[in-house]
C-alpha cells in the first residue's frame, strides 16, 4: 500500500480543520510501520481515510491511497465493502466503546462472517471459536455467549482483535490498541499482535503516541506532527540517528528506568489546526528553530535511502545543531547495551 500526499479536512463551526496535510508513506508486505505523534496530530484521521470511514463532515482534499493497484481515495461506500475487514482491518483504541454493549461477543465476531462473507451460522461459529482461541481467550465456548461488560479490558481488546482478524485481512491497522489498558496488559497485547503478525504474515500499521511502545515492534517509524510526517525512517534511524527536533523531544520524553533522569516534556501545546502558524507548525515549540522556520514550511530532506525528515536544519546552509546532550548520551548507552546483548 502506498499513500501519497494525502490531505483531509473537516468542516467545523470555527472553520476548516486541516487535520492531515500531505501525508505520504508506504507499507510493504509483511512489515510493521509505526506512526507516532502526540494526540491530535492526525493519526486516526489518516487511518479513517484509508478505510473510508471519515465522519460526514470530513473530506479527502487531495492525494491517493493506492492499494492493490486501486485508489481507495476515490472509492465509493459500495466499493469499500470489498476492502473493509476482508483486506484491511482496524483495531480500535478503546475496546469498551468499540464493542456493542448489548450483543454477545460471539455474535459480534460471527456477524462479519455471515453477513459480509455469506458463511453459514454453524461454520461461522466454529471459525469464531478458533479465532477466540487464537487471540488467547480462555474458555471460548462459555465466553462466546457472554456480553462485553463481562470481559476485562484486556480480554475485550482480544475480542476486538479477533473481530479484526475474522475475514483474514492482509493489513491490520492498530490505532493505539494499548492506550486504554493497564501497563501489564499492554505488554501482553503487544506480544499477541507480534505473534499473529508472524503467524498470518500480516502487514501492520501501528499507531501510538508513545515511542517507547514501538521500540521492539516496528520495522519503520513515521513521526507525525500537526497533520504532517516530519521524520520517517527505519526503527534504527529513528532511535539511534534522529535528526528532527520534534523526534528528539519525543525520544527525550520516554522515561529511562536506568538513570532516573527527570522526564523532559515538550513545552507548549499542539497548534490550532484551523489557524496554523505560517512556516513549520512545530517552530513555536522548537528551541532549535531558525528564522526560516517561521516563514516557510520545510520540505522533506533525504538523510539516507531509508531516512528522511522535514526540517530546515538539514538544509546545507543551516547552522550545525546537535541533538540535546542528555538524549545523545542516552542513545550512546542504549547502543552499547544492544551490542553487549548481541554478544
Amino acid at each position: 500500500m502506498r499513500v501519497d500526499d494525502l490531505s483531509v479536512s473537516f468542516r467545523a463551526y470555527a472553520g476548516l480543520v486541516k487535520a492531515v496535510r500531505g501525508v505520504s508513506f508506504h507499507l510493504d508486505k509483511g512489515e510493521t510501520l509505526a506512526i507516532v505523534g502526540e494526540s491530535g496530530s492526525g493519526k486516526s484521521v489518516t487511518m479513517k481515510a484509508i478505510l473510508g470511514i471519515l465522519p460526514k463532515n470530513g473530506r479527502i482534499d487531495s492525494g491517493s491511497i493506492i492499494y492493490d493497484g486501486q485508489d481507495l481515495a476515490k472509492f465509493t461506500e459500495q466499493e469499500f465493502y470489498q476492502i473493509r475487514g476482508k483486506k484491511i482491518s482496524l483495531v480500535f483504541q478503546d475496546p469498551l466503546s468499540a464493542l456493542n454493549p448489548i450483543m454477545i461477543v460471539g455474535k459480534q465476531i460471527t456477524e462479519a462472517l455471515t453477513l459480509s462473507l455469506g458463511m453459514s451460522k454453524e461454520r461461522a461459529k466454529v471459525r469464531a471459536l478458533e479465532l477466540m482461541n487464537a487471540v488467547g481467550i480462555p474458555d471460548c465456548e462459555t465466553r462466546f455467549h457472554q456480553y462485553p461488560f463481562q470481559f476485562s479490558g484486556g480480554m475485550r481488546q482480544r475480542v476486538v482483535i479477533a473481530i479484526a482478524l475474522a475475514s483474514d485481512p492482509e493489513i491490520l491497522i492498530c490505532d493505539e490498541p494499548t492506550t486504554a489498558l493497564d501497563v501489564t496488559i499492554q505488554a501482553r497485547i503487544l506480544e499477541l499482535i507480534k505473534e499473529i503478525k508472524a503467524q498470518r504474515g500480516l502487514s501492520i500499521i501501528f499507531i501510538t503516541h508513545d515511542l517507547g511502545v514501538v521500540a521492539n515492534m516496528a520495522d519503520r517509524i513515521a513521526v507525525m506532527y500537526a497533520g504532517k510526517i516530519v521524520e520517517m525512517g527505519t526503527s534504527d534511524d529513528i532511535f539511534y540517528r534522529p535528526v528532527h527536533p520534534y523526534t528528539w523531544a519525543l525520544l527525550s520524553s520516554i522515561p529511562d528506568l536506568d538513570t532516573k533522569e527527570a522526564l523532559v516534556s515538550i513545552p507548549g501545546t499542539t497548534p490550532d489546526m484551523i489557524h496554523l502558524p505560517p512556516g513549520d507548525a512545530f517552530s513555536p515549540r522548537n528551541k532549535y528553530a531558525v528564522a526560516l522556520d517561521f516563514e516557510r514550511e520545510p520540505p522533506m530532506f533525504r538523510v539516507s535511502d531509508t531516512h528522511c525528515a522535514a526540517t530546515w536544519l538539514l538544509h546545507p546552509n543551516a547552522p550545525k545543531v546537535e541533538m540535546p546532550e542528555l538524549l545523545a548520551n542516552r542513545i550512546r548507552r542504549n547502543a552499547e547495551e544492544r551490542i553487549a546483548d548481541e554478544r
Partner: peptide, 10 residues
C-alpha cells in the same frame, strides 16, 4: 465506536 467497528468488519 461500535458502529464504526461494525462497518470496519465489513
Amino acid at each position: 465506536d461500535f458502529m464504526l467497528l461494525a462497518r470496519t468488519k465489513g
